[in-house]
Design a binder for these strands. Structure first.
Lengths: 380, 380
DNA sequence: ACGATAAGCCAACGCTGTTGCGTTACGTCA
DNA sequence: TGACGTAACGCAACAGCGTTGGCTTATCGT
């Protein structure tokens, strides 16, 4: 048995003898959910077109999803002669997941439904120097409180936090430079043991991008999310797939050099984006901060060719007018030579819940996300 | 019917009623080929482990591949009691593809076998100002000559060329700035009509990376290839998948700014990597050229977290000692803070055939490549 | 009220990998 | 030399996927 999708399906519907075709089914189920997630009711014919399968197959797929309570009929629609088209919609309340956003001083958590909508939020202040067991207790406590809200099957807990994180092992790596009590903590396993729920640990900006793209499938297939909070981070989704990279550090723009002989950085070099950005903020020079951001964004756009850039994080919200304008201007200028390339700059839609909601969506994506290129229209 | 793999399989074995399971089979076939491509004979048990399927399934998969002549038995291997393990190997000569490398003054072509090995090469000088029909005739002529060499089924023709290329539509876009007679030429369709063979047109550096990774599956799953020839280009493979980006321009590093107030560039800005690099070369300052390269590579490593960087192209070969050293030094310096991150810098293995062989491998990859994340060990 | 039309269901089908059990080929030991 | 244990492998039955072709259902136009 095996492969990703098989596991997924095995988890989808409790007990069922493992079959190899599950992965086809799983991929199609996920694809249908992705379309339905956009909110508007969908019809059999449209789905057949989108998935490149027979309408009859869509019926079977929908039957499966309806059995699991994730899809429901939603009226019908008649234009011209013939039997009217039956419409279907997603059932958001059928599943839910918890997302936790951990920073050095604050823990912010949410419960989200199947569409990534936030149902409830909680915030707790935490002590950055408390030992790991106490931290886990805080996380578990908030998760348990949140688990009381909303209905449907609880899928798991996502945790998003800044700094080097190993999402594969579920470990917070921490940075070697600064003292850090949580360094090396196997947060995922500890929390899993505590809660007996699947746990996903990941980088904050990656969680954020998963969250943003979960609620608007397809829109952010080639996008970068730049997160400006305590540090400066980014994450990438290219050709529809979240990019991890060899060391799970793809998108770590904090230490890109933006100013040749700039300010010294703890990392040992000068002019890193992160220090320059934070320094500009400290000096309340929003224009300069925005310029730093713009440089980073322009680099990203050039190197990986994204057509949408999402900006998020506290410091961005605080001055989003200035920031967005500056970034847009820098992009216009930098890309003037390439007329065909248009890049849209967006402000994150989730405000303060950005990362927590994203972490919840990572659980959803792991369970019901597309296994990348298996499904969809011809990719030629 | 539908989805990539279905088509692939349909083409794999001539006429066969389209089934939906083809894509599972196709993915598994491709995975087995990927393992076999490494050269060493493989055993049933090892494949079962790698693909996460039953040994019995591997038997069926191998039967399919043997029927198509792509795999053959290759002795057996006995250790201890019991029936000895049967070994299998890939049959390189069972398939072949043509690769063409087009520059403004030279056309270099190769035939490659199923493993990407070059069987034969041809070079022709061409006139950059000849009209498109004449260019197509040159391409077709070289392809026809090459097609006479080697055995096995001819799969198609790959074309790699510099400059903005649209691999989806198969069109050479050309740059708006310089005069260019081939701008907008639908090279793929024209050549397809001429040769009646599948044609793949792509960017030179992307072709090169496909070629390098085809012959050593898995090794370059997170890698960038930087190509320094007439211009400066790069391509990316992240998490095992070639990255295209929204406008098929991922990896276009030529116009990244490396020197704030550097030399003016045709693109309208100053200090672009490409002009700086070419200027350094013109001044025969190899050290400086290497520094520019190193800056670009460092940016790539930081932003997308590749763990291997392949360098290729004429100007790199000419002074590869200096170049490799400089790049390695810059990386060591730039990544000193992150001890866990180690990046290997490699010189392309294919020399002058780099792009032509890569273009041929693009045909192979399209036909027998892994449909990304469908197959393989559990990705948790 | 009737026929044309379009959506959707049922049943049979081919294919996948899986499972269970039998077969083959080897080393070992009496 | 022959019996035994062992490991690789093959055969046959099986479940489940989407497909195919034919039938049913529900609407509109006349």
């Amino acid at each position: 048995m095996g492969v990703l999708a098989t596991r997924r399906r095995a988890r989808m519907s409790a007990v069922r003898p493992t079959g190899p075709l599950d992965r086809v089914a799983g991929a199609h189920d996920a694809a249908v959910l992705a379309v339905a997630r956009r909110g508007e009711p969908v019809a059999r014919a449209g789905l057949a077109d989108a998935l490149q399968v027979t309408p009859q197959a869509i019926s079977k797929i929908l039957t499966r999803l309806i059995d699991r309570g994730m899809i429901a009929e939603s009226g019908s629609f008649s234009s011209g002669p013939g039997k009217p088209t039956t419409l279907y919609r997603i059932v958001p309340e059928s599943r839910r997941a918890i997302g936790l956003h951990l920073t050095s001083s604050l823990l912010h958590g949410v419960v989200a439904d199947l569409t990534g909508q936030v149902l409830e939020r909680r915030s707790v202040e935490i002590d950055p120097r408390q030992p790991v067991p106490a931290l886990i207790a805080d996380l578990a406590g908030t998760a348990r409180e949140l688990a009381r809200h909303g209905g449907g099957e609880m899928l798991g807990v996502g945790v998003g936090m800044p700094g080097p994180v190993d999402p594969v092992e579920g470990i917070y790596r921490g940075s070697a430079s600064s003292a850090d009590d949580w360094r090396g903590a196997p947060i995922r396993d500890l929390l899993l043991e505590e809660l007996a729920l699947p746990v996903h640990l990941d980088h904050d900006s990656r969680a954020a991008l998963v969250g943003e793209s979960w609620s608007q499938p397809g829109l952010l297939d080639n996008a970068a999310l730049v997160l400006a909070e305590e540090g400066l981070g980014a994450s990438l989704r290219l050709d529809g797939v979240m990019v991890r990279g060899a060391h799970s550090q793809a998108g770590e723009v904090g230490h890109t050099v933006v100013q040749m002989d700039g300010l010294p950085c703890p990392c040992g070099r000068r002019g890193c984006a992160q220090v320059e950005y934070l320094a500009a903020l400290a000096a309340e020079d929003q224009e300069q901060a925005a310029r730093v951001l713009a440089t980073v964004v322009l680099d990203l756009v050039r190197l990986v060719d994204v057509d949408r850039v999402v900006l998020g994080g506290r410091s961005v919200y605080a001055h989003h007018q200035v920031t967005m304008e500056a970034v847009r201007r820098a992009l216009d200028e930098g890309l003037r030579a390439e007329a065909r390339v248009h890049v849209e700059v967006l402000l994150s839609t989730r405000g303060i819940d950005l990362i927590a909601a994203g972490a919840a969506c990572q659980v959803l994506e792991h369970e019901y996300g597309l296994p990348s290129a298996l499904v969809g229209p011809e990719s030629e």
